[in-house]
Design a binder for these strands. Structure first.
Lengths: 340, 340
DNA sequence: AGCACATGCTGGAACGTTCCAACATTGCCA
DNA sequence: TGGCAATGTTGGAACGTTCCAGCATGTGCT
């Protein structure tokens, strides 16, 4: 009411004149640097709350020519692994005053091109690619312009990126070792050779079998990461002559498919068939399913990705080494010693 | 190599001098407005690609004093409903040249305060709150400053927000009607009265029962949205004297708990007990589970939220009415006519 | 011929910060 | 007493856009 013109938000100049100082002093107080007398400091502080002053991020970014923002590109928000990795990432970045701008690669009209363009225009200081991205020229261009970390995929666009992901090879070996220890020998694998993670897990399976002296039992049914694929692979495995006593599926969804197939064939889990999955999704925890699975440290991976990215943001920093995070096995009711 | 000083990115002035025009012409060409001769237009276009010019979003935002950005605050990225709502939101916003900046409310150090501060500093043009947020003074402040839409929660901070959510009441009635049509009369509910959605679904259940003339059978076991709660509620229901022939659980997770309880009690689904859930999560689709559930149009809700937000962004626009989106029933193998 | 109007182009003034060089005021020490 | 460092304060110049008023031309009409 009594305010003269109260249309626009208060700027640093408004604060300065309200506090009876120059804009420079306000800036110094706000950023806590430099020498300012106690009196002016409190005067500025008061003016700030009185005028509800909020610094303008665009002006700051323009002036500093840095945005304190990193771009995060996902291509599958539905995958719980990515979600919790992003949470880890977000936390660490925030701790260091960096803001995250997320976007969905697939969702973007021009297959991510316009998303990346937008991010580049925002002058992002770093880029995090979460998951395996489809090939796209724009991606390589973007990765060449800003420090880039790939999170949760075995490799990224171009050579100049740092990769943080889980050691799927080691995880698969864990499963095989667990099953072998229980006494299983005929352990089959339901794989997804066309996906990056699937290929790594299959390698780990084969290596683990060989290491356990079970090379002769190696047998992989190719499929993909869906329940469907697990189901049909399961039917195939369980109908044949030398039925396996245990199946290691490439992920939890496929493992569920295998369990359904077992049920249809009248086999009970784990008495007649042990089943293990991968990813330790919330599904695996469900009482009705209780699936032995490999827990991937997704949250930690996100945090680590943030750390490596920030390391690259330092002046003259070298390209950090890629990191493979070790997974752990979560044994549950779906695996047991082979019956009779 | 032969480039003189090639440190900083090209600006509009570089493009202008390379094309032999003034910065104003470049600006006009870039934005496609105003009158520019064909010759200069192509000259500018060539210079743009040659210099790899990228407009600077911060400068643009500062000059236009608008950010073309909306803030999206989630508090539970793990909830699939939210994820697909956000996808719908993102798509529509992008179509209209608006960028999305997401943040996780809980993850933020100072319980969202600093996240909201950051968003406000970015001069966001709108705010979307996804899901029920914990009470926070910062939220109400933010909602008062920028047009705000609440997505997937029955209400938001302050009165000045638009709410887009699913009609949980109607969804619950759908389930009851479906079960009643199959011939069930003793239909129990496993509820979550302490959550906003749970309360609405419980109301719908009670109303639906009454409408079907089954008021005398109304019976709700309070719980929450977890499998655990569903399990113990299930045990309670299935051990008592007048065992229900059907159970409607507040969500798919709780429904799974009920199914586990049935299994433990030696009851088979759906022969001895029909079970229905809510949310139509990927879980419900699984062969091994095949759960009848209510599909909430989450993607559409996200799109609608974007539309309503953009409507509010128009000059002199009224506060749009809240919207309740109608859900649909997805009947699967977990419900059938009551046995004998 | 004179005028209006469409077309084409320009430079300066915002936008709201940060950074910097420079100036003022102290207090201390030789 | 003069010099020097520490402390305090200032205005101007970026930062890279958009927007606007205004200046040139050219064209068609009266």
């Amino acid at each position: 009411m009594s305010d003269p013109v109260r249309k626009r938000a208060a700027t640093i100049l408004d604060v300065a004149s309200a506090a009876g100082v120059s804009k420079s002093v306000v800036s110094l107080v706000l950023r806590g640097t430099g020498y300012v007398s106690e009196a002016k400091r409190t005067a500025v502080a008061r003016a700030v709350v009185e005028l509800r002053y909020r610094p303008n991020a665009a002006a700051r970014a323009l002036s500093e020519s840095r945005s304190r923002t990193v771009g995060v590109v996902l291509n599958d928000m539905r995958n719980p692994w990515f979600v919790s990795a992003v949470e880890g990432l977000n936390g660490r970045l925030n701790e260091h005053g960096l803001q995250m701008v997320m976007g969905d690669f697939r969702l973007d009209s021009r297959s991510g091109e316009s998303l990346l363009k937008k991010l580049l225009e925002m002058n992002i200081e770093g880029l995090v690619l979460v998951g395996t991205m489809p090939d796209s020229p724009g991606l390589a261009v973007a990765a060449a312009q800003v420090p880039t970390v790939v999170l949760g995929a075995p490799s990224g666009p171009g050579a100049n990126v740092t990769v943080v992901t889980n050691d799927d090879d080691a995880g698969a070996r864990l499963v095989v070792a667990h099953l072998a220890l229980l006494g299983h020998r005929n352990i089959a694998h339901v794989g997804a050779p066309d996906t990056a993670v699937g290929a790594a897990r299959q390698r780990g399976y084969a290596a683990g079998m060989a290491a356990a002296g079970l090379a002769e039992f190696i047998r992989t049914i190719p499929g993909d990461l869906t329940e469907e694929a697990g189901h049909s692979a399961g039917l195939e495995l369980l109908s044949g002559a030398d039925r396996p006593t245990a199946v290691f599926a490439v992920n939890d969804m496929a493992a569920l498919g295998v369990m359904s197939a077992a049920e249809e064939r009248g086999l009970s889990v784990p008495a007649d068939l042990s089943v293990a999955g991968y990813d330790n999704t919330p599904l695996a925890r469900l009482r009705r399913i209780s699936l032995t699975s490999v827990d991937t440290a997704s949250f930690a991976a996100g945090q680590r990705a943030a750390e490596l990215l920030m390391a690259r943001l330092e002046p003259d920093s070298a390209l950090p080494h890629d990191e493979l995070l070790p997974p752990t096995l979560q044994a549950r009711g779906s695996t047991a010693a082979p019956g009779r």
